[in-house]
Computed example of a mutant assay.
Amino acid sequence: MSSSSSRTAGSPVQSPSFRRLAWGLLALSWTCAGASFALSLLRWAAIGHAEGWGGWMPVGLVPAQAQLAGLTPPASMDTPWRWVGVALECIPAAAMFYTVLCVHRICRAFLAGEVFGATVVAGFHGVGRGFLAMFVTSLLYQVGVTALLSWLASGQNGGMIALGVGPFEVSTLVVGLMMLLLAHVLAEGRRLQAEADAFV
């Protein structure tokens, strides 16, 4: 058994509570990502069908960017424009699922006993990049969804573009930078440990 394996075997991070936490994070991240994307798709099936919903449109299905801009969803929407809306949802969803995939790799590495290995360092780098990508794609999504809904609501005779930085965007930016910093710290710690092992 290698020295790194020996250190890991007795480490508190391999305790049952740690493993439950890793499994919980793994399950929660995929569940939240899947539920968020499903809700995003559902809104484009609901928008334009107010009469079919009894004249009531669930607030949660209206894009938050449209609500903040004071936009009213169009009374009707042709199927091709619904697919455009789905395509818009896929922009931030791609960044979100990339981030969740990186979290998945980190958790799997933890569960395998690799706490400070290359996979974990690369995973935190990926999470940082993913959150920064979520920040950028959120801005792109704002522009796209407000332009589309305002254009359709005006009868395709005009529209508007709304762009703003709210708590979500600020949070993703801060967390992304923190994850990149953490990745650099872990990489440096791993390098120093490798140097120490070389002298043993």
Results as ranks from 00 to 15, higher is better:
residue 2 S to H: 15
residue 10 G to T: 08
residue 10 G to Y: 11
residue 13 V to R: 03
residue 14 Q to L: 15
residue 15 S to N: 13
residue 17 S to H: 09
residue 17 S to L: 07
residue 18 F to P: 01
residue 18 F to L: 08
residue 22 A to N: 14
residue 23 W to S: 15
residue 23 W to T: 14
residue 24 G to T: 07
residue 25 L to G: 15
residue 26 L to P: 01
residue 28 L to A: 09
residue 30 W to P: 05
residue 31 T to Y: 09
residue 34 G to T: 13
residue 38 A to K: 12
residue 40 S to H: 10
residue 41 L to H: 12
residue 42 L to V: 13
residue 44 W to R: 06
residue 46 A to N: 03
residue 49 H to R: 13
residue 49 H to T: 09
residue 51 E to N: 10
residue 52 G to Y: 09
residue 53 W to R: 14
residue 54 G to A: 07
residue 56 W to T: 07
residue 57 M to G: 01
residue 57 M to C: 03
residue 57 M to I: 14
residue 57 M to F: 14
residue 58 P to E: 04
residue 58 P to T: 10
residue 59 V to D: 12
residue 60 G to E: 09
residue 60 G to A: 13
residue 65 Q to W: 02
residue 68 L to T: 14
residue 69 A to H: 01
residue 70 G to S: 09
residue 71 L to D: 02
residue 72 T to A: 10
residue 73 P to V: 08
residue 74 P to A: 11
residue 74 P to T: 09
residue 74 P to Y: 12
residue 75 A to N: 09
residue 76 S to R: 14
residue 76 S to L: 10
residue 77 M to T: 05
residue 78 D to K: 11
residue 82 R to P: 05
residue 85 G to T: 08
residue 86 V to N: 01
residue 89 E to A: 05
residue 89 E to S: 06
residue 91 I to D: 01
residue 92 P to Q: 06
residue 94 A to S: 08
residue 94 A to H: 03
residue 96 M to L: 15
residue 96 M to N: 08
residue 97 F to P: 12
residue 98 Y to L: 09
residue 98 Y to W: 14
residue 99 T to S: 03
residue 99 T to R: 00
residue 100 V to Q: 01
residue 100 V to T: 05
residue 101 L to Q: 10
residue 102 C to E: 03
residue 103 V to N: 00
residue 104 H to P: 00
residue 104 H to L: 07
residue 104 H to R: 11
residue 105 R to W: 06
residue 106 I to P: 00
residue 107 C to M: 15
residue 112 A to M: 05
residue 114 E to K: 07
residue 115 V to D: 01
residue 116 F to Y: 08
residue 116 F to E: 03
residue 116 F to P: 00
residue 116 F to N: 04
residue 118 A to N: 06
residue 118 A to R: 10
residue 119 T to K: 11
residue 122 A to L: 09
residue 125 H to D: 15
residue 126 G to P: 04
residue 135 F to W: 08
residue 138 S to H: 13
residue 138 S to Y: 12
residue 139 L to K: 01
residue 142 Q to G: 14
residue 142 Q to M: 09
residue 143 V to W: 04
residue 145 V to T: 08
residue 146 T to S: 08
residue 148 L to P: 00
residue 150 S to F: 07
residue 151 W to T: 13
residue 156 Q to V: 14
residue 156 Q to A: 15
residue 158 G to L: 15
residue 160 M to F: 07
residue 162 A to H: 04
residue 162 A to E: 03
residue 165 V to N: 00
residue 166 G to D: 08
residue 168 F to Y: 11
residue 168 F to A: 01
residue 168 F to R: 02
residue 169 E to Y: 01
residue 169 E to A: 02
residue 170 V to N: 10
residue 171 S to Y: 05
residue 172 T to C: 02
residue 172 T to G: 00
residue 172 T to F: 01
residue 177 L to D: 02
residue 177 L to R: 05
residue 177 L to S: 05
residue 178 M to N: 06
residue 179 M to H: 07
residue 181 L to N: 09
residue 181 L to T: 10
residue 182 L to I: 11
residue 182 L to A: 11
residue 183 A to M: 08
residue 183 A to Y: 02
residue 188 E to M: 05
residue 188 E to L: 05
residue 189 G to P: 02
residue 194 A to K: 13
residue 194 A to D: 13
residue 194 A to W: 04
residue 195 E to S: 14
residue 197 D to M: 11
residue 197 D to L: 13
residue 198 A to Q: 10
residue 198 A to H: 13
residue 198 A to I: 08
